[in-house]
């Protein structure tokens, strides 16, 4: 973590606190450093701002939509002010961390199943953030690889056994 990044984390925290205050949502913000995902490849470390408050549900929104809007706006504001793009992650009460852990377990389970049955398995369609977690989790796996197929809302991860002749 270099100094510049620490500085940006501070700026991001202030922006987020201002937004929450203006939204009338009393909450506190804590910084967490490090990657959300466990992976064989090096994942660039991110700054996570974790929000804690009385009403986490209203900030997360349906399927995490409000949370991703909040994150998007904080990134846009920082991008505009600091002229750099930093992958700030905003989480509410560890919602994303829990989701991430659940997706990792899912990925490992599916990988095992695909290894045994020796046939590809397509997961449910997922948003980009979720698909990325699956890819990153299985990137160093000995017996399977992953790819995405489908477009837009229907895009999903397919787990494929290694050594399967591709068509």
């Amino acid at each position: 973590m270099n100094e510049n990044k620490t500085e940006i984390a501070e700026v991001a925290q202030t922006i987020l606190e201002t937004l929450l205050d203006l939204m009338g949502v009393p909450a506190s913000v804590n910084q967490e450093h490090g990657a959300l995902v466990e992976s064989e490849v090096e994942v660039p470390s991110t700054i996570t701002l974790n929000v804690e408050g009385d009403d986490p549900g209203i900030l997360i929104g349906r399927r995490g939509q409000t949370l991703s809007c909040l994150q998007y706006l904080v990134r846009i504001i920082i991008g505009h002010q600091e002229k750099v793009w930093v992958p700030i992650v905003i989480d509410v009460e560890g919602y994303k961390q829990r989701r991430c852990n659940a997706l990792q377990s899912l990925a490992w389970r599916i990988a095992e199943q695909v290894t045994q049955r020796k046939e590809p398995f397509a997961l449910e369609p997922m948003p980009a953030f979720d698909r990325r977690i699956i890819h990153l989790t299985l990137v160093g796996h000995l017996d399977v690889t992953t790819e995405s197929s489908g477009e837009g809302e229907a895009r999903r991860v397919v787990v494929i056994p290694k050594g399967l002749p591709s068509d």
């Binding site: 203006l22 939204m23 009338g24 949502v25 209203i58 900030l59 929104g61 809007c69 998007y72």
Partner: peptide
């Protein structure tokens, strides 16, 4: 329209609270 949509999402939270 992504930024406008994001602003509306935050506004909805505030409006719901109030």
């Amino acid at each position: 329209g992504r930024i406008a949509e994001a602003m509306r999402a935050l506004l909805r939270v505030k409006a719901a609270k109030a």
